[in-house]
Amino acid sequence: MSARKPGVVFLLGPTASGKTGLAVELVERLDAEIVSVDSAMVYCGMDIGTAKPDAETLARAPHALIDIRDPAQPYSAADFRADAIAEIERIHAAGRLPLLTGGTSLYFRALEDGLSDMPSRDEALRARLTAEAERDGWHALHERLRAIDPDSGRRIHRNDAQRIQRALEIHELTGLAPSVLHARDRDRRNASALPWSICKIAVAPARRQTLHERIAQRFRSMLAQGLYAEVEKLYARPDLSLELPSMRAVGYRQLWQVMDGDMTLDEGIEKAVFASRQLAKRQLTWLRSLDDVNWLDSEEKNIENQALTKIKNARLRTGAVL
C-alpha cells in the first residue's frame, strides 16, 4: 500500500469574505503555516489597500510570499508557482501543513494546473475575424478551420461562433493547429500534476448583499486608515505608473486616477467599490466551477470549527515520510 501524499489546504473565497482571519485562527489550532496567494500583497509599501495582515497578526501567524517585490518590479503567475512550490516543500520538510489563502484565482490555477501555452486574446484579430464572419458567415469560417485543423473542425460545431473564432485566433497567432496546442496543454498539465492531497475550503457569505456591504465598509475603513496617503506616496515615485501590474490593483488604480485629475475623490471611491464587487463576482464564478470544494458560510457561528472538521476529515498528512 502506497503512502498518502503530503497534504495542502487551499482556503479560498472572494475579497472581503474573511479568509485572513479564518486562516490565522486555523494556524493557531493546527500545526500549519500560511502561504499568501495574493497578487498585490507581494508588493512592499502596498499595505492598507491590499488588506495586508498587520504586524500583530503576522507575529501570530507569519505569511510567506508577502512583501517580496518592489511595486516597480514585475511578478508573474509563473513566479508565484515556483515560489509557492518552494514554500510548500519547505513547510512539508518541517513536518507542518501548508495553508494557502488569498483571492488571486489565476495564482491558484497556475499552481494546481500549471501554465498554459495558449496565446492571449488579440482584440484586433478578433475584430477582423468578426468582420469576416459578418461578411461571409460563420459557416465559411468553420470551413476554413476544417481545412486548417480537421480535428478541431470535427469537434467544434459549425454554429459555435465563439469557439470557431478562438480556434482561428490561436492558429493565426501561433501558426499551429489548435488541436496540437490543446494536446500539448493536456500533456503539460499531466506532467505538472502536484504531488499533494489538496483540501479546498471556500468561505463566503450566503447573501450577495452582505458581501457587497462588507466590500463598501472595508474600503471606507481603508480610507480611514490612510489609504489615500499610501497611494500618494506611491504616486510620487517617478518609476511607477498605471502601466505596471502593481498600480492596476483595485483601489490603487482608482485613487491614482483621482490624483491624475481624471475624477473626483467621491467618483474614485464609487468606482473602487464597484471594481471590488466585480472582482468578487469573478472570484465566485471561478470558485463555483471547481470540483471538491467545501463551502462555508462566513456569517455562521463557529466557522473555525467547521473548517477544522473539513480539514481533519480530509486526513491530510503533514510533512515528508522519514
Rank of each mutant, 00 (worst) to 15 (best):
A229K: 15
G226E: 12
P205H: 01
A204T: 15
P245S: 03
M247Y: 04
L234A: 12
R158W: 09
L168G: 07
E243S: 13
L145N: 10
I170C: 01
R163Q: 13
L168W: 05
Q217W: 09
I164G: 02
A224L: 10
R163Y: 14
A167D: 11
S221T: 11
E232G: 12
Q165S: 13
I164Q: 13
R248F: 08
Y228T: 13
L173S: 00
G137A: 08
E213M: 00
H139Q: 09
R237I: 10
A202N: 10
R158E: 06
T210V: 11
D151Q: 11
R184D: 14
Y235M: 06
L255G: 00
D149C: 13
I164E: 08
H157D: 14
N190D: 15
Q225G: 04
Q254T: 01
L244H: 13
E243I: 00
L168E: 12
E143W: 07
I170Q: 00
A202V: 04
Q217Y: 11
G153K: 06
A147R: 12
R186T: 11
Y228A: 04
I198H: 03
Q217F: 10
E169Y: 01
H171I: 00
E169C: 06
H139K: 14
R189I: 06
V180L: 12
Y228V: 14
P238F: 00
E232K: 04
I164S: 06
L141N: 13
L240Y: 01
E143G: 09
A147S: 14
I156C: 09
I215T: 13
N159S: 05
G137Y: 05
A249R: 09
Y252T: 10
A202I: 06
R237A: 03
K200F: 05
E169P: 11
H142E: 11
R207G: 08
P178D: 04
R208Q: 14
R248Q: 08
A161E: 12
N190R: 15
L255P: 02
E172A: 07
V250H: 06
